[in-house]
Amino acid sequence: MMIRYITRRLIITVPTLILVTMLLYVLLQFIPGDPLDAYAPPDAPISIAQRIVLRHSLGLDHPPVVRYFFWLRDTLQGNLGLRASNFQPVSDAIANAIGPTLILMGTSLTIAIVLGLVLGIISAARRGSFFDVFFTVSAYLGISMPPFWIGLVGLYVFALVLHWFPAGGFDTPGQPFALWDHLHHLILPAAFLSVFNLAAIMRYTRSALLEEIGQDYIRTARAKGVSKRIVLSRHALRNALLPVVTVIGAIIPSLLGGAVFIESVFSWPGMGQLYLAGVQARDYALVMGITLVTAAAVLLTNLLTDIAYAVIDPRIRYDD
């Protein structure tokens, strides 16, 4: 039964992706400006003649509807078009950016999940204790500051004042590959990127656990003398995982598409920066290309999340 459900979901993925790109294309037409307006600074704009040539080189001289079908056709053949700013193939730009983003995302997500679960469990088990209140207040402190701003403060403190970490970047320019150098550059942005997700996972874990602890089967187990630790880990946690898994499933595509602010402040050459540049430059091909990748990630993680539900809680069925 599950196999049929998964197959059906996978088949729906294709029209969904096409729908997303079509809607995006329509919306892009409403946003003022096109790549030519971004080609030069506003205080020294480009000439009409230059505009016409560039427009043609970018294929912008076709009507939007035609352009969409050209885009779709080329994309199906594996060609995502060229960036407006420097005519680099969009697929190259994405291939260059996705590696750094996956590294950053993977690290920060690992930190967020591990610490989030552990701190969430502690908070729930000792509800109302000093730890609980302390973690709660810290979590909300962490998510109450704009990410760009808090990143800048972090850069200032850890790179400039303490000299513990480098001031942004993916590695030391011009140096041969060194694992330590990479890790050294990774720690700070990964830590700051994990703050919001850590707080979210921790709060959902805590809340779901409290919910489960209130359930009567837990009370029964406790009444029968099963230790609190075992009740928590064997029974409550498993069921509490549902919202936590949902949230992690929502975090993954959002991270892939852009830790825009953290990437900007830490000069991390990832998808978020690329995406921001694409939007600011009205670089249609780039925006479409990145959206295609993130949309595919959304559909996949949502499917994986739904499968995970059924694994966690066999009562969940999708076929009726």
């Binding site: 996705i98 996956l102 041969p176 595919a296």
Partner: peptide
């Protein structure tokens, strides 16, 4: 140099850190 969408998704799963060799 263009890659197919499938390839992109594939890369998304297995991509290593794209190390940069210095000179």
């Amino acid at each position: 140099t263009s890659v197919t969408l499938t390839f992109l998704i594939f890369a998304f799963i297995i991509a290593p850190g794209l190390p940069v060799s210095g000179s």
